[in-house]
Amino acid sequence: MLTIKRLGLTLAFLGILAGLSSLALAERRLADPAQEARAVALHKTLRCLVCQNQSIHDSNASLARDLRQIVRERIEAGDSDEQVIQYIVDRYGDWVLLDPPFKLKTLALWFGPLAVFLIGGIGMVIFLRNQGRRAASMKNAAPPLTEEERRQVQRIIEEGDGQ
């Protein structure tokens, strides 16, 4: 008797859980699979504003869900991919694009790393070249040993340095 009651409770609990999870997942998908595929492809290029650095495709935030829905609606209304993206960018700016557009304002973003790499490379070349030149000039600068010094060296080699 008790086990049956417990079983019933468990089932009821599981039912509630299932209901909750389906509620969380309730999202209208587009009937046309091609359109839905386009929508999902666009979702993956749009950045979520709440959990930043996730796409709206990956995010569970309610705003992300709304934006996914808006993308679907725009596609259903016959917008091109560019028009859909523009619709979102008009409201939230280039910031929402996971792939930042190439324009004057983003030049530093696109070329910054390359510039740093070049400056570093040029600096390294200059440094190494100077280093080589200095070594060469040191070699030339050292005067040859005098006869006295040569004898001293010879003595040290033969007898040790006196210890």
Partner: peptide, 12 residues
């Protein structure tokens, strides 16, 4: 629905 908020660019 939050749709007007989205038109205003509200995100939080």
């Amino acid at each position: 629905s939050g749709r007007v908020g989205i038109d205003w660019g509200v995100y939080g």
